[in-house]
Design a protein around this nucleic acid. Structure first.
Length: 597
DNA sequence: TCCGTTACGTA
DNA sequence: CGTACGTAACGGAC
């Protein structure tokens, strides 16, 4: 047995590494004496879905606050058996981003997500409930290193973060490429691996008492963990990719890109270099004035649109074609598993408001809306159809309910046109009224409305004033929330979530309250759909929409039932969900929807 | 190689 | 007093 000593704030930590099956006796003693353990895995990469072609677990680690065990599972099958035994024996497993380790345990050790999920405690979830802010926002962050730095020890965080960088340097590879090639018994790697469960265990002990009593009372800890389980199941299912369609679009976009790069070549080498573009346009005699936040000359769509020159058009079309090809079509093709499916990474609790986000080869939240150009690439199962069910006007309905504003509530109860009501009050076109409504929700003011709607300052001010005098209770709620934000540094949401608000941006409190509350309604929908047996049909959650693959002959019935389950009522105001049934591809849902209007 | 900045797609 | 996210690319810092 290999033993490595470490210190956290002068306290000794012992890392034990199993080398032979004889070492397992003491590991078994440890597991029996520690029903609650930190848990982590080291793997060849993050692509757990490629377990049948290269992905594998390298180490599995268990630990408490002062001692940990590293089992090199790739080295000896008896270690795998011991890990399986330990995972089953444990009463509680603490892991950071435990969803990933659950996927690993499933594909590498054969323990289903369903078995491990009930006893996982995820320090990312706990940390979010204590303080959801990223480092950039002045918070502790949500990554393990960031949390270690903030809650445990600065030096430890730097050592752990720095160690993999050092190892990568030693092997002369990029940090992201080190995981499959670092030697199993590399001492630095082992101490990195061994420290993770210790850190997770300690973090849990620090974080649990810091979670607000109100959150605990509302059951948020368990609720968020059950939600993370449902999104993990959706990740596991994956989404079928239409290779022929993707290849067709890739071909088209390559032709388009080459054509416009060729045009631009007369003036610049690189259409993606703003520096080159600024110089080129200035040499052509164009006066550039728009600046970026940092004071550089801007070269965005607005600037390019204002320039009447073939280079401007070529730059827009060339960069767009390249970006769309790589971000959406090639990412999806490259991310497929051996069965032709892509597995999104769903962060069930991510933004400050706890909004979910999707990363990896299916950045679904950025797919162009309006048509099925990208969405056509994703297919329902054989014999199934794609169905999209979304909440209509979720955020405004939630605002109406929570503010109890009589005008707004009445608009929704009697199916009146809310945007027209605002427009009439301000005597502006409906479009401006609609923008005003959303702007209030976003915390914006007349300046933003002026820019976005392209109206005068006077009209913009009039619209905002009209909003506030029409929906007086909304104004009251906004004032109440920003006052709380200024006084306490944050607000509690309806689900008992603590939501920090910067005191100098207290106006954002209303937006946070609405965005977070709306997210929780989608989260509730996912949990209720899961309870009703719909999980196997779910493909993606996207803010206020859930995408399904339903068997064709039952599509109508299942869509109606799922929409009924998703629908919610807040203080008497309905937040209904509406389903649209398409053909095989997700994109077809939009095409059919369009044809109806 | 890493990271800040810019741009752009969405709710 | 416009919120929240993810990704690609450049170019300076190391």
């Amino acid at each position: 047995m290999l033993q490595i000593s470490y210190t956290i704030k002068r306290q000794p930590v012992q890392i034990n590494v199993c080398e032979t099956p004889w070492d397992l006796d003491r590991f078994i003693d440890f597991v029996e004496a520690n029903p609650v353990m930190g848990f982590d895995t080291e793997t060849t990469g993050l692509d757990w879905w490629n377990h049948d072609r290269g992905f594998r677990a390298r180490h599995a680690q268990f630990g408490n606050g002062v001692e940990s065990w590293v089992l090199p599972v790739e080295y000896n099958p008896e270690f795998v058996a011991a890990v399986i035994w330990a995972l089953c024996k444990a009463r509680l497993l603490i892991a950071h981003n435990g969803t990933f380790d659950q996927h690993v345990s499933e594909v590498s050790f054969g323990i289903p997500l369903e078995e491990l999920a009930p006893k996982m405690l995820d320090t990312k979830i706990l940390a979010h409930l204590v303080d959801p802010r990223a480092v950039k926002e002045g918070g502790p962050g949500l990554k393990l290193e960031e949390l270690t730095k903030h809650y445990i020890d600065l030096k430890l965080a730097e050592e752990v973060k720095g160690s993999m960088r050092e190892i990568a340097k030693r092997y002369k590879v990029k940090k992201e490429d080190i995981w499959p090639i670092v030697r199993t018994f590399d001492l630095e790697f082992l101490s990195y691996a061994g420290m993770d469960p210790v850190i997770a265990f300690r973090l849990c002990n620090v974080l649990l008492p810091l979670i607000p009593a109100r959150s605990k009372k509302k059951g948020l800890i368990g609720w968020e963990h059950r939600l993370a389980h449902v999104t993990a199941l959706i990740e596991r299912t994956g989404y079928l990719v239409d290779e022929a369609y993707a290849l067709m679009r890739i071909g088209e976009l390559k032709v388009e890109e080459e054509k416009w790069v060729g045009v631009a070549k007369q003036w610049v080498d690189n259409v993606n270099s703003n520096q080159q573009l600024v110089t080129a346009f200035q040499n052509l005699g164009f006066k550039l004035t728009k600046r970026t936040k940092k004071g550089n000359l801007a070269m965005d769509a607005e600037v390019l649109d204002s320039i009447d020159h073939p280079l401007a058009e070529a730059v827009k079309k060339a960069t767009k074609a390249a970006k769309w090809r790589k971000t959406w079509f090639e990412n999806a093709l490259n991310g497929r598993d051996s069965q032709g499916r892509v597995h999104a990474g769903i962060n069930s609790i991510q933004a400050r408001t706890a909004r979910m986000s999707i990363t990896g080869s299916v950045p679904a939240q950025t797919f162009p809306s309006g048509d099925g150009y990208v969405r056509h690439m994703f297919l329902a199962e054989e014999g199934h159809v794609s169905v999209s069910i979304d909440f209509a006007n979720m955020e405004l309905r939630f605002l109406a309910a929570e503010s109890k504003d009589p005008v707004m509530v009445d608009a929704f109860l009697s199916d009146k046109d809310l945007h027209q009501i605002t427009a009439d009050a301000a005597k502006v076109p409906r479009k401006v009224g609609k923008m005003g409504n959303f702007l209030i929700v976003f915390g914006g003011g007349w300046k933003a409305l002026m820019e976005q709607a392209g109206v005068s300052a006077a009209v913009a001010k009039k619209t905002i004033d009209a909003f506030n005098s029409t929906y007086t209770w909304v104004d009251k709620l906004a004032k109440k929330l920003s006052q709380q934000a200024r006084r306490y540094g944050g607000i509690y949401t309806v689900t008992g979530r603590w939501l920090p608000v910067d005191r100098d941006r207290a106006y954002a409190a209303l937006n946070y309250y609405i965005q977070s509350g709306s997210r929780d309604i989608t989260a509730r929908a996912l949990l209720n759909l899961h309870a009703a047996g719909f999980t196997k049909w779910m493909r993606l959650p996207i803010h206020d929409e859930i995408v399904f693959s339903f068997p064709k002959e039952r599509a109508a019935e299942l869509t109606a039932e799922a929409a009924r389950i998703m629908g919610f009522s807040v203080k008497g105001v309905a937040i209904p969900a509406e389903g649209e049934i398409g053909d095989r591809s997700w994109g077809s849902v939009l095409e059919l929807e369009d044809s109806k209007h």
